[in-house]
Amino acid sequence: MENEFKLISGALVTLAVSASALVVLPYFQLQSVRPPEKLKDYSPDEAQGRQQYISEGCVYCHSQQPRDASQAPDAKRGWGRAPVPGDYYYDKPHLLGTMRTGPDLFNIGARQPSIDWQLGHLYQPRAYTPNSIMPGFPYLFELKAQAAEGDKVVTLPPAFAPAKGVIVAKPEAIRLAKYLLSLDHTYPIPDAAQAK
């Protein structure tokens, strides 16, 4: 090859083809997607909790996209039906995730609907799931001698509770737990939405 213009224009064309296939066409195809009727937008607390999820990098170990029953037994694990694009209508940025060092969280709010469980698990995962390799997030909590009024005290199994005082959830932890509880996509979707 002797012509740099042929090189660069050829390279730009191949990139344009690739961008059309993976970015532009999906953009137009998915633009008209509407949210399912029962899907709610995130409340301000949940939206902030979602930011906390992003800050702590939860997405690197948890997906939010169960696979269809024809491919994998994700539904049998309680992770829910296969999602449709509309399920992610309010998600900016998307948090589909590509790793399952831990379980899928698409329906964690339905699976573990107790905020006490969520907070205790965020403080020390092994208090609830023996052998879990998830890190605890002690910096989202504080140890207090006594709970003040309005404090959210974390209930822990005796073996994991502090010897003295109580563990209180900081607002960040409560918002993160609220976001996790909002992850409930158990509502039915019409068949038409399933079309791809």
Binding site: G10, A11, T14, L15, V17, S18, A19, A21, L22, L25, P26, Q29, L30, Q65, R67, D68, Q71, A72, A82, P83, V84, P85, D87, Y88, L96, T98, K196
Partner: peptide, 22 residues
């Protein structure tokens, strides 16, 4: 490489809620 490599990214989303053709 220039042509094929650019279009392989969708294989990270196999089984995901993305257009099947992609």
């Amino acid at each position: 490489l220039a042509f094929f490599y650019g279009q392989v990214g969708g294989h990270h989303l196999i089984g995901g809620p993305v257009p099947e053709w992609m």
